[in-house]
Design a protein around this nucleic acid. Structure first.
Lengths: 147, 147
DNA sequence: ATAATTGCAAACAATTTGCATTCAG
DNA sequence: CTGAATGCAAATTGTTTGCAATTAT
């Protein structure tokens, strides 16, 4: 991510926070920066990244900040499967395909979901959020190897 | 679920277990029955259901039994979103659409996924498992109400 | 006997909560 | 000063593990 994008994110955050009488703290900036650097990461990973800069930041603050950023619409989280969810700053341009045999994550362009998205909207009035959940199945390698 | 289906399930389980030198215990039968009754449930819910019959059954056993049944291919689990996964005896005939605003779960016929399934197989060699994960988005009601 | 299975308690991981302290306007 | 934000410890939730006691063959 380019520097001016980072600045733009920070600016947006600062303004959004200010509008609500909240503060732009170093911790919040660190979490945002960590997410921009890591692209997507679990709270634990964000914490580690943040702590390379400022080791005193508590994981509680990471959780609180991620929740805050999410409620502000600045980050979102995705369940890639079992375990901790993965947070990221932007909508992913792709859909995650998780192989439940080997755990590998494939990324498919989000366009593969467009037809489904249309169907669900038309038939069920459901606005599919393509990036929130991963799709689960078996990858090419494992299909071949499978018993 | 009809009685003879329950019997069929029990029979299958008994045989599968026997083939591997394992035993058909009351606990295992109780877990299977609970799943058949509840259709799909979290380990916690299964435990409660089982304990209405036999209060001494420990939740550890529930976990172990669910894991066993899953490894035998008799049950499978689905992540409906945050929190505990949901177990069920059969492939669901439907796909779960979870509204992340109100938490409501809509069930769509699995056919809505067929085109996507084909695309993923053709383009990514990925065998989509339709029932393992829920799709996330916003339901009709919440879309209407949304700010 | 002996191998499988269970219950119980303790360990664990991920997350949340209560509260006293710190910090900025 | 006052409310917002943080750090820390403790509580919670969901799940797993070690082990001794029980049970079926």
């Amino acid at each position: 991510m380019r520097l001016r994008d980072i600045d733009a994110e920070r600016d947006q955050l600062r303004k959004t926070l200010h509008r609500r009488g909240m503060r732009m703290t170093p911790q919040r900036q660190l979490v945002l920066d960590a997410l921009l650097e890591l692209e997507h990461a679990t709270p634990e990973q964000v914490c580690q990244q943040v702590q390379t800069r400022t080791p005193t930041v508590n994981i509680t603050t990471i959780y609180r900040t991620l929740e805050l950023l999410e409620s502000l619409g600045i980050v979102r989280h995705t369940h890639l499967g079992h375990g901790a969810p993965s947070y990221s700053v932007h909508e992913h341009g792709h859909v995650h395909l998780v192989c439940h045999r080997c755990g590998n994550v494939i990324e498919a362009p989000r366009e593969v979901m467009e037809e489904l998205r249309g169907t669900l909207r038309a038939r069920h009035g459901f606005a599919l959020d393509v990036s929130h959940l991963a799709l689960s199945g078996t990858c090419r390698t494992c299909t071949g190897e499978s018993s």
